[in-house]
Amino acid sequence: MKPGKLVRLRPLEPEDTETIWRWHNDDDVTRWLDADYDESLAQLRKRTEDRVRNSYAKAVFGVETLAEGKLIGITALRDATPEVGRAELDVYLGQKDFWNGGYGTDALRTLCAYGFDVMRLHLIALWVVAENEGARACYRKVGFQEDGRHRECFRARDGRYHDMILMSLLEGDLVR
C-alpha cells in the first residue's frame, strides 16, 4: 500500500494487542467510540487471533508513523460491496500525542486513496458524533461532505445521547 506523507497503513499484528487494549481503556480515546463492554487483555488477544483476513468486505489497518514506525491508531473500510462500490470508514488515533499533527488527516487520505484506487470504490461514508468538531473538520479537509443527521442515536459512556452526522466522499472529491 502506498504510504501517506506522515503515516503508512499496515495490517494489524498480534503484538499490537497490548497497545490497542491500553487505548480501549483510556476515556479520552474512547469518548466518541461506540460504547462496548469492558474486555480483558486475554479477551482482546483471542479476538485478535480470531480476526478474519482482510478482504473487500472488511479491511482493517494499523496507522503507523513513517518517521518512528510507531502504531498510533486504527482505520478500516467495512461493509464494502463491489456491486454498489460503497464502504463505511472507521478511524481513531489512540496515541494522544499525535492528535494535532496532521496524522489523522493523512491516515484518512491514505485509506480513502486505497479505497478508490485499489478497491475501486465510488463512495466512502462515515458517521461522526455531531459534537466531535475536531473529527468533522478533519473529514472536511479530506473532502467529505455532510449528508444528514440522525438525532440522538449515539449514547455516550456518560449516558447522554448525541446526534450523529452522516458524511460521504465521492471518488472525485478526495483532496489528495
Rank of each mutant, 00 (worst) to 15 (best):
G143T: 08
A80I: 11
K141Q: 12
L71Y: 08
D97N: 04
R176Q: 08
H24E: 15
H24G: 13
E83N: 11
L77R: 00
L111A: 05
G85I: 01
T81E: 14
D50L: 15
S55V: 06
L77S: 10
R136P: 06
E13M: 09
G102L: 14
A87H: 05
Q145R: 09
I72L: 09
G73M: 09
L89W: 06
D26A: 00
D97C: 03
P14R: 07
L44C: 07
E83D: 13
A135C: 08
E15P: 12
R22A: 13
L71K: 08
D38F: 00
A113K: 10
L33C: 11
E15Y: 14
R149L: 15
R120F: 10
N132V: 13
K70V: 12
D28M: 02
R157C: 11
I72P: 02
G69W: 12
F144P: 01
N25K: 14
Y37R: 15
T81P: 00
D26F: 11
W99M: 06
N25T: 09
D50C: 10
V29H: 11
N54A: 03
E133K: 12
D90E: 06
L89K: 07
K5S: 04
C153D: 05
E88S: 01
T19W: 04
P82M: 13
D106G: 11
D26W: 11
E131L: 10
G94W: 02
R151T: 03
W23S: 01
A137L: 09
V142E: 03
V7K: 04
D38A: 15
A137R: 12
N54S: 06
L121V: 12
N100A: 05
G104R: 02
A130M: 15
E39W: 10
R149M: 12
D34M: 01
R151I: 01
N100L: 07
K5A: 05
D147T: 09
Y161F: 15
Y114A: 02
L6G: 01
K5I: 01
V84I: 09
T30G: 14
R160I: 06
V84M: 07
T48P: 01
E13C: 05
E18G: 07
H24W: 13
D163C: 10
E88W: 06
E171I: 01
S40W: 06
L33A: 11
T75N: 06
A107F: 09
V91Y: 03
E146Y: 02
N25M: 08
D28K: 03
R53S: 10
T81Y: 06
I72S: 03
P11Q: 00
T48S: 13
G85K: 07
